[in-house]
Amino acid sequence: MKWLISNKGFLCILFAVFGVLPTFANSYLLYVSNLALLFIILAIGLNLLIGYAGQLAFANAAMFGIGAYAAALLQVRLGVPYWVALPAGGVIASLIGTLMAWPALRLSGIYLALATLAFAQFTLWLFMHWEDLTFGATGFAVPRLSFAPLPVTPEQGIYFLSWIITIGLTLFAWNLVRSRVGRAFVAMRDNEVAAASLGINLLRYKVFAFALSGFYAGIAGGLHCGLLNYVAPESFDLFQMVIHKSMVIVGGVGSVVGSVIGAALLVATLELLREFKSLQEIAFGAILLIFILFMPLGLVSFLKRVLPGWEEEVHLPDARTAPAVEAADELRPVGERSP
């Protein structure tokens, strides 16, 4: 029984629920759950970058878009089948993510945030203006997927595909953060100089963190184009970025399970807030604020406190308990930064 309330048990139960959902869900619930799966991938990818590697990047929505555009354009322009286009989208987003590691070598904190924000705005501008390639602001339709000869409708097909990929990427991240690489990320986040003196190659790990995060976002983008059968710039704007950031922080910075919870919870919240009609923005702002104020370290740190079986890894940054090392700018109390 103890196993059930541990973080591993929770993950298993959650993904099992996602797995049986198509047997009873209507089209609306299935679609929203599918979105939730995509957002789980996005949140984990972003958390690897922000929470583990400590890079305050604001370009996740752009990476998501690059994955979606790449996967969709490969299909539409070159007739590449979806099975190839989807991973190719991930790889392309990953390569572009690598480019972003370059400014990250010189910048951190708020400056890196702005540089990546500018990059995201530039990407959005390209989606809208490189009309010969991207079809411009009106977007374009992508052919509906067929899962023949499997006995599933396209809706169920893309759902199960997303489900399998989400589980795979969650497991990968779970193992990664417990490996040498994960520890190197955390060391780099907590103190770059100390990490470097321990023999951690900052360049290599930063590039890897950006590439990995880009890959996650890119795969989510490819699934997004398979789910919507339509790609348009609006899906990748800064509102998306806000959603991704919120999922990571609400769930818990530096926790894979936290991102899973944060993503599922945020998608559910956004849908439940529909009842507030035109007051949704106010309700969303208020709920977000309440979460941050009462659980500044995320839901997982709360769960860790109340559930004894919850074995969270040590990766949660905590300003109060980890004063021994000098925290990186973005994780240090804002009022106390050295000039």
Partner: peptide, 9 residues
């Protein structure tokens, strides 16, 4: 309440 919690918050 967040001034000590960090820039991201």
């Amino acid at each position: 309440p967040l001034m000590k919690a960090g820039l991201v918050s």
